[in-house]
Amino acid sequence: MSRLLCTHCKFSLTTCLCEDISQLKNSIKVIILQHPSEIKVTKNTARLLSLSLTQCEIKVGESESDFTSILDLPIQTTALLYPDKTALLLDDSTTNTSQFSKTLTHLIVLDGTWKKAYKIMQMTPSLNAFQKVSFKEIPKNRYRIRKAPRLDSLSTLEAVAHSLALIESIDPQPLYTMLESLNKKQTQFMPEHVKARYQPI
């Protein structure tokens, strides 16, 4: 039997987050390339970004043929959020990084596990045309309900929130508050000994 879903946020009625969603006005358009395996993941945060940010779009696929629209993006003012040795570090105050950040109009973000994101990169060579950006220091992971294999893993929501804070000086707290609500509502019916595994350290 399928669960009843909220028609707006698409979470189950018992974990509906509509009352927790705040609208944030961002100037840089966030384009999320979402791996198909993430669509039905109940803990996926990309959907929350699309409901919270005024400039956000989700495109689903895993290869070049699925993301042909990125070919129309301005190469000089579009960045790809992806850890790489060639990436400019958004939290580095050097002149090159600062000047580049001020010119950005689009930010591409890959939504999926590390393995799936890597697959998207390999199967979408046109992504290499864009300047990669990343972080020198990874903020503390607030997304406790979905375990990741790497200590420096961030949810899509956290990665975008931190990026916009660095690039546009947007206050990311409303996004983090929404994420904390997701943490609590996804664990509310767990036995106490199980819920304890997902509490802040």
Rank of each mutant, 00 (worst) to 15 (best):
L4F: 08
H8T: 14
C9G: 03
K10G: 02
F11R: 14
T14D: 15
T15P: 11
T15I: 05
L17G: 09
C18K: 06
Q23Y: 09
Q23L: 14
L24Q: 07
K25W: 01
N26H: 08
S27K: 15
V30G: 07
I31M: 08
L33N: 05
H35V: 12
H35R: 02
P36Y: 00
V41G: 07
T45P: 00
A46H: 07
R47A: 11
L48T: 09
L49K: 06
L49M: 05
L53S: 01
L53K: 05
L53M: 03
C56I: 10
E57D: 06
I58V: 12
I58W: 04
K59E: 15
K59S: 14
K59I: 15
V60I: 14
V60R: 03
V60Q: 05
G61V: 10
E62A: 10
E64A: 04
T68S: 14
S69L: 14
S69N: 09
L71Y: 00
D72M: 10
Q76P: 02
T77F: 08
T77Q: 06
A79N: 08
L81H: 06
L81F: 10
P83K: 08
K85S: 12
L88H: 06
D91I: 00
S93R: 09
T94N: 15
T94Y: 10
T95L: 12
N96G: 12
T97N: 02
F100G: 03
K102R: 13
K102E: 11
T103F: 02
L104D: 04
L107S: 06
L107C: 06
I108C: 04
V109C: 12
L110D: 00
L110M: 05
T113D: 11
T113Y: 00
K115P: 05
K116A: 13
K116L: 15
Y118F: 13
T124E: 00
P125R: 01
V133L: 00
F135M: 04
F135D: 04
K140N: 13
R144E: 01
R150M: 12
T156L: 05
T156F: 05
T156A: 04
A161L: 11
H162R: 15
A165L: 07
L166I: 01
L166V: 05
L166W: 07
E168P: 01
S169H: 15
S169N: 15
S169G: 08
I170W: 03
P174Y: 02
P174R: 07
L175D: 02
T177S: 08
T177W: 05
M178P: 04
M178H: 13
M178R: 14
L179S: 11
S181A: 11
L182F: 13
N183G: 09
K185L: 12
K185E: 08
Q186I: 10
T187V: 01
P191E: 09
H193F: 15
H193T: 14
K195Y: 03
R197C: 11
Y198M: 06
I201L: 12
